[in-house]
Design a protein around this nucleic acid. Structure first.
Lengths: 241, 241
DNA sequence: CGAATTGTTGATTCTGTTCAAATGTGGTGG
DNA sequence: CCACCACATTTGAACAGAATCAACAATTCG
């Protein structure tokens, strides 16, 4: 069977963890043999989600973590004034719902930005399995640790920088993540709207539009609607700095 | 012995976890009896830190988490341009170093803002103890989950809001945390500089100074140097909204 | 195809930054 | 204890960058 892509899912069958392309990015990073089978048995497969479907909403009871097998998801909460504030975009291989472990309630909304498939990991069962598979306990801590670093990195990125810097960093960050997942990092298909990007970066959506146009003018990239072709990585890097 | 305060430490003796005033906020939240003793044995006490002392620096090898027994700590990283960016202020009972579990290297600097005492929790030993005390495994996940929520809350707080809103939220958040620790929430002694606050909130320090003056003018609070007396909580809440 | 959503671009306004100077505070050593 | 110094804070004035308002073009989706 040929390697599935994000556009080829007519005959797409959800692989076992063992055969999953993003296993190394996901929770069962270090599992092998027996442990992997146990993990696999624990995972609930879910029907594919389409754009706009919710994985969970603020206030929902927490019982599972969710691993993103392919697609893209945005997480957002409502600010005190009731406005939507995006806290992250999630790609293939990332684990969602970690913020809810403590309170048993989801603290944000998670919605699919495009056709997406996720694996559900019931948390009670996961904690049971941790007792039998000690490395899993460590792996979960690592995944959470990474999420903490990601959020703090985001805080650092927002802090006191211009619109141009933020956008350049956003694009480079996306590139990094695509590369890590084995995609072409220079040709980004942005699954989110300009509105979403602006919200995420703390900028008006008009500013995103203008800054993208500006980056195109100075030859850093080429815009084709939702697709951005990065032309000058080191140029972008120096803008981001 | 009378309850120790932050100014009375001449005869201050570090309490065992069992007697620690912030146990319910710290890692051994749910431990009792035997388990608590084991935890206590694992904790390394450290000499008090004075203002400006570092707990760890970016790039340091990770081997322990640190629980803040009293005092205040700021965490910061360096942005791509080499500027300091503060990612958090930590109070009594909070656990530091969670961002480093994954990579084994600390990803930020942690420095004491005032006289501070911390407990060191060697992580290997902690993971060993988790195997014997299953609830500890859950508690650590909870602490990490809370940190993720804190950072995401911060992202939501920064996103698209005015200087006045950010400052009001910052003060109310500090109030909350002081109340949770049994202090008077209406009389805040800010251990950090205006510069630090500005950096944290993504604003110039002059803006902090001006906004504080402004909040004083409209009767929300009273400024006495580093001490802020909150006079109108619901007023501040409506400004924050 | 047509409605609705998303994206672009221009003009104006305004919030917060920057630069600058004066004042206040805490800590240090004589 | 006091003088002094480095550092923090306040305040003013000019400026800049991004937000907002507004009109229009392009895509997407039913």
């Amino acid at each position: 069977m040929s390697k599935p892509t994000s556009t080829d899912n007519v005959f797409h069958v959800k692989p076992a963890c063992e055969d999953c392309g993003v296993r190394r990015l996901c929770l069962p990073v270090s599992l092998e043999g027996e442990a992997l089978t146990l993990m696999d048995r624990l995972v609930k497969r879910r029907t594919p989600l389409k754009k706009g479907d919710y994985i969970y909403r603020t206030g929902d009871r927490f019982h599972s973590l969710y691993a993103l097998q392919y697609g893209a998801i945005k997480s957002y909460g409502l600010t005190v004034e009731g406005k939507e504030q995006i806290t992250g975009f999630h790609l293939t291989g990332e684990v969602l719902g970690l913020d809810a472990i403590d309170s048993s309630l989801h603290s944000c909304n998670a919605v699919a930005l495009e056709k997406t498939e996720i694996c559900e990991l019931p948390f009670d069962a996961l904690e049971q399995l941790e007792k039998e598979v000690p490395s899993l306990q460590h792996d979960l801590a690592c995944i959470m640790s990474r999420e903490i670093r990601r959020d703090q990195g985001m805080l650092m990125m927002i802090g006191g920088s211009s619109a141009e810097q933020r956008l350049a960093r956003f694009l480079l960050n996306l590139r990094e993540r695509m590369l890590k997942r084995g995609f072409d990092g220079n040709q980004l298909r942005l699954p989110m709207t300009r509105q979403d990007i602006g919200n995420y970066l703390g900028l008006a959506f008009e500013t995103i539009s203008r800054q993208l146009a500006h980056l195109q003018e100075i030859g850093m990239l080429e815009i084709d609607n939702k697709t951005i072709r990065l032309l000058d990585i080191s140029g972008l890097e120096s803008l981001a700095a």
